[in-house]
Simulated assay, not measured.
Amino acid sequence: MARGPVDQYGCVRWAPTDLPSGETETTLNEMKMRLHRMFSEDGFDGAERAEPLMEKTYILQRRYLNQVPAPTIDKVIEEWPFLSSRRCLYSHFKLLTDVSIISKLREAIHSKGSTIVKFCQGLSRYPGIAEVLANYDVEVSDKAMCVLQLLRTYFKEPQDAIVLEADPSATAADVQRMTRLPSTPRLIVQGNV
C-alpha cells in the first residue's frame, strides 16, 4: 500500500479539514464527551472500546494538538485522556503518518536488533556488555530491552537516561506522583529492567 502525500513533518494527516462521513461538529463533540465519561468510569481498561471513537474524533484531536501555542502534555492528557493509552496513541500515530508503529518497531528490533546484539557479543571485554548479555534471552522475548540496555551500556549512559523503573502495579498517575519525571523522554518500565 503506497503512502499518501506528505503534508507536514512526514505526516499525511497533520491538519485534516474534512469531517468523517456522516458526522458533524456536534456529533464529534458528543463523542468526545462520551470518551471522557468512558475514561472516568473505566480508565485505560476502556481503551479498546474508545479506539473507534478516538479515530472518528481524530480531526478534533489534531485541531487541539496543532494549536499555537501548543498545549502542555498535562493539558493534552486532560483533554484527550485516551491519547495516553498505548492502543489509542498507536492508532493516532497510524492515522497521522500511515505507518503502523508496532510493525515498524518489530521489524527494526528483529533486523537491526540482531545486528546490535551480534556486534556487542564481540565486545565481551567492554565494561558491562557481558553482564547485559547474560541477563537477557534475546532468542525469546527480551531482545528489545536487551538492545536498549546494550546501547545504554556501550555509550556509557546512566540507567535512568533511557529507562525508568516503576512498580508493576503502579498506574500512570502513581508514577507521576512518586517520581519527579525528567523533562526529556524516557521509557517507563513496570518491573525489573
Rank of each mutant, 00 (worst) to 15 (best):
L133G: 04
L133P: 05
A134H: 11
A134Y: 01
A134C: 03
A134V: 03
A134N: 15
A134M: 03
N135F: 01
N135I: 00
N135V: 00
D137I: 00
D137L: 00
D137V: 01
D137E: 00
D137K: 02
V138E: 01
V138C: 10
V138G: 04
V138D: 02
V138N: 01
V138Q: 02
V138P: 01
V138I: 06
E139T: 14
E139D: 15
E139Y: 04
E139R: 13
V140N: 09
V140D: 14
V140Y: 02
V140E: 11
S141F: 06
S141M: 08
S141H: 11
D142A: 12
D142R: 10
D142H: 11
K143D: 00
K143H: 02
A144M: 11
A144P: 00
A144E: 08
A144G: 03
M145Q: 10
M145Y: 09
M145C: 10
M145T: 07
M145F: 14
M145G: 05
M145E: 07
C146L: 08
C146W: 05
C146T: 03
C146N: 04
V147D: 07
V147E: 06
V147I: 13
L148V: 12
L148N: 07
L148E: 02
L148I: 15
L148T: 09
Q149I: 02
Q149P: 01
Q149F: 05
Q149D: 15
Q149L: 08
Q149G: 05
Q149K: 11
Q149N: 15
L150A: 07
L150T: 02
L150D: 04
L150S: 04
L150H: 05
L150Y: 05
L151Q: 03
L151W: 04
L151M: 14
L151N: 07
R152D: 02
R152A: 07
T153H: 09
T153N: 09
T153L: 06
Y154A: 08
Y154D: 04
Y154L: 15
F155Y: 14
F155M: 11
F155A: 10
F155S: 09
F155C: 10
F155N: 11
K156D: 07
K156F: 05
K156G: 01
K156C: 06
K156I: 06
K156P: 02
K156H: 06
K156S: 12
E157Y: 15
E157P: 00
E157H: 12
E157N: 10
P158K: 09
P158T: 09
P158R: 05
P158E: 11
P158F: 00
Q159A: 15
Q159F: 13
Q159T: 13
D160S: 14
D160P: 04
A161W: 13
A161H: 15
A161G: 15
A161C: 14
A161Y: 12
A161S: 15
A161R: 14
I162S: 12
I162T: 14
I162Y: 12
I162R: 10
I162P: 04
V163Y: 06
V163F: 06
V163G: 08
V163A: 04
V163W: 05
L164T: 10
L164P: 05
L164H: 03
E165A: 14
E165M: 13
E165Q: 14
E165D: 13
E165K: 10
E165L: 09
D167Q: 11
D167Y: 09
D167E: 14
D167L: 12
D167N: 15
P168W: 00
